[in-house]
Simulated assay, not measured.
Amino acid sequence: MTTQVPAPAPDFTPTDDVFVRKHMGVPDIDVTDWTLVVEGLVERPLRLDMAAVLALGTERLAAFHECFGSPFAPDVPTRAVAQVEWAGVPLAALLDRAVPQAAARHVWFEGADTGSFHGQDGLTYVKDLPLPTARGDVFLAHRMNGEPLRAEHGFPLRAVVPRMFGTNSVKWLTRIVLADRRSDGVFTTRFYNRVLPGEASPSPVREVDVSSKLFAPGEGAELAAGKVELSGRAWSATEIVGVEISVDGGAWEAAVVDAPGPGPTWQRFCLTRELAPGLHRVRCRARDLAGRVQPLAGARNAVHEVAVEAG
C-alpha cells in the first residue's frame, strides 16, 4: 500500500519553464483597445475592458496545467506539464451578471488568435464546454505566477479549465458566447477528439488522464552509487492514490505520495532506492481514485522512463 504524507505548499513551475503552445501564432494585443464580450443566450450582454475585469476582484488558483499534445498523434506521450498560480476571477462571476437564458446549454470561448492551421485558412480558435462545467470550473486569469500574463501565455486574459487538457484553456480571450448547441468550429469538430478506452465513438479531449513523471533524477543524469531519492509528480482529474516505481524492469515498489492539496494541484511522490554502479532504467506509474492506472505502452499517458548512470 502506498504511504501518503501531508500535502506541502504547492510547488510552482517558473514561468520561463512553462510550455508554450500556439496554433496560429501569438496575436499582438494592445490592452487599451482590448475588450471581452459576453453575449448569445444571455439576458444582459456584457462588454468589459481590463479595468472592468479587475474591478470584479482578484482570486488565486493553484493548478497543474497539461498539454494534450498533437491532435494528429493522440497516443504519443508529450509529458508537457507545469504547475501554475493563476490570478483572476471565476467565470461564474461574469455569468451571474450576464444571466444565462433557460435555453443556454453550452459556453463558447473565442481567442484573438486567427489564421491558418493544417491547410485551412480563415480560422479562429474556439473551444466549448457544457454550461454547468463552465460555470463551476472555468477561471479567467490575467496573472501567472505573480506577474501579468506574458503574450505567449495569453495576455491580457485567458481561460483556465482545471483538470482538463490545456487545449480547453483558451488564450487571448476576446469573446464568450452562450448557445444552445456546441460550436461547429474545426477545433471542436475535427481536431482534439479521441476514442476513450471502452468507448466506440470519439469524444472531446477534455478530462486529463492519470499520469506521472519523474523529475529527479532526470534523463541521462549521472549519480553517485548508493542511496538515491527518486521523485516526481503525479496528477489526474481526481486524487492520486498510489504511485509505484520500477528499476531495471524489476518489481514495482510503492512510493510515498503527498496527500492531495486543497485545489487541482499535482502530488509529489518519492522513493529512496539503492542503485549499484552502472546504467539503470527507472519507470513510474500512477493510480487514481477512479481506479485508472497508467498503461505500460501505447498511450499518451504511458509510464514515464528515464535512463541514469550511477558511478
Results as ranks from 00 to 15, higher is better:
K227Y: 04
F64W: 12
F215S: 15
L157Y: 03
Q294P: 10
D49K: 08
E59Y: 01
G185P: 08
V195C: 09
D11E: 14
L46Q: 02
E253V: 14
E66K: 15
E309M: 04
T238P: 09
L41H: 03
A73K: 14
R150M: 08
F19K: 12
V256S: 04
A216I: 09
R281D: 08
V42K: 06
Y192T: 04
V138N: 01
Q120P: 06
E274R: 09
I29V: 09
W34G: 04
D209F: 15
A310E: 04
A112P: 07
G226P: 06
G88E: 00
H106I: 11
V247H: 01
H23T: 14
R300W: 13
E229L: 13
Q101A: 07
A98F: 07
A104T: 02
L279R: 14
D121Y: 13
V195I: 15
P197S: 00
L275S: 01
D288F: 12
R105D: 12
A255Q: 11
E43S: 09
D96H: 08
R135E: 03
V37P: 02
V31D: 04
P14H: 10
F139R: 12
C67D: 14
A259H: 11
A225H: 07
D248V: 12
E207Q: 11
A299Q: 08
P162H: 06
E274K: 08
F139E: 01
P148F: 10
D96W: 09
D33K: 13
G291E: 15
N193Q: 11
G198F: 06
A307D: 04
L91N: 00
A92H: 07
A159M: 00
V208S: 13
D258G: 11
P264H: 08
V107N: 12
N193G: 12
V247G: 00
A224D: 10
L289A: 14
Y125A: 14
P260A: 12
H106N: 11
F12Q: 06
F72H: 12
F19L: 09
A87K: 13
A234N: 05
A221D: 09
H23Q: 13
D209P: 14
G263R: 14
A82D: 08
A225R: 12
A102K: 02
L61G: 05
G119A: 12
I176V: 03
L196I: 10
D16Q: 14
G122E: 03
P148W: 08
L123S: 03
V76A: 15
A51C: 02
N168E: 03
I176G: 01
R283S: 11
V195F: 08
L178F: 01
I29C: 05
D30P: 10
D184T: 08
P204A: 02
A52S: 06
F117M: 14
H65L: 02
T188K: 03
P295T: 10
T3A: 12
T15L: 09
S203V: 07
R158Q: 00
G198L: 05
L91W: 05
C270N: 11
F117Q: 07
A290P: 04
Q101N: 07
E222V: 13
R194W: 15
G119S: 13
V20Y: 13
P277I: 00
N145E: 01
T133F: 11
E222W: 10
L149F: 04
V160W: 00
G291D: 14
A216R: 13
F109S: 01
L54N: 10
D16V: 15
E110Y: 05
L196P: 05
F187E: 02
V89Y: 04
L157S: 00
D16E: 15
G298D: 06
G154R: 02
R285I: 00
